[in-house]
C-alpha cells in the first residue's frame, strides 16, 4: 500500500502536536517513519494474503480402489502440505475427490508438488490435477 504525501504531512503535524516541547527534528523523523512503515506493512500483508493465497485445489478421479487417498495424502504430508478441506463422491466403481491444500509452509514449490502428484497418478492409474485456487475463484465467484 502506498501512502500519499498528504498523509505523511498529516502524520508529521500530529507527531509535532503530540510531542509538544520535546519535539526535535530527529525525533519527529523517527516517529513518523516508524508509523509510516507500520501503516504500510499491515494492509499490504493482508492484501497479498487475499489476492494470492498459497492454496491449491487438487482434483482426482478414476477407478476406485483401496488406498488411493492414503497414497495421495501421504505424499502431501511428506511435502508438508496442509489439507484444508476434502470432499469425495463415489458413483458405481468411480470416485471423484477434491482437496483444498495449503502449500505455503511446504519447502517445495508448486511445480515440485505437481511432479510428485503426476508420479502418484501414474502409479495408481488415476487422474490427478493440481490448479491454483485463483482460477476457480475467478471463474465461479464475482
Amino acid at each position: 500500500m502506498k501512502i500519499s504525501e498528504d498523509e505523511i504531512r498529516r502524520l508529521t503535524l500530529e507527531a509535532i502536536t503530540e510531542l509538544g516541547d520535546k519535539a526535535t527534528p530527529d525525533l519527529i523523523k523517527k516517529v513518523v517513519s516508524k508509523s509510516v512503515s507500520s501503516i504500510g506493512m499491515l494492509p499490504e500483508d493482508k492484501l497479498s494474503d487475499n489476492l494470492s493465497s498459497g492454496r491449491i485445489i487438487l482434483t482426482s478421479f478414476g477407478l476406485n480402489s483401496p488406498g488411493i487417498i492414503a497414497q495421495i495424502t501421504k505424499t502431501l504430508s511428506e511435502s508438508k502440505c496442509d489439507i484444508r478441506d476434502l470432499s469425495q463422491k463415489i458413483m458405481d466403481e468411480f470416485y471423484t475427490m477434491i482437496m483444498i491444500i495449503d502449500i505455503s509452509n511446504s519447502p517445495k514449490d508448486f511445480k515440485d508438488i505437481q511432479n510428485e502428484m503426476n508420479r502418484v497418478a501414474e502409479e495408481l492409474k488415476v487422474k490427478i490435477f493440481l490448479q491454483h485456487e485463483d482460477v476457480f475463484r475467478y471463474m465461479h465467484r464475482i
Binding site: T59, D85, I98, F136, H140
Partner: peptide
C-alpha cells in the same frame, strides 16, 4: 468447502474435455 463440487468439476471438464 469454499467451492461447490460441481463448480470445480465444471472447470476441469472445460479444460480437459
Amino acid at each position: 468447502m469454499p467451492y461447490e463440487f460441481d463448480e470445480i468439476l465444471e472447470t476441469i471438464k472445460m479444460t480437459e474435455i
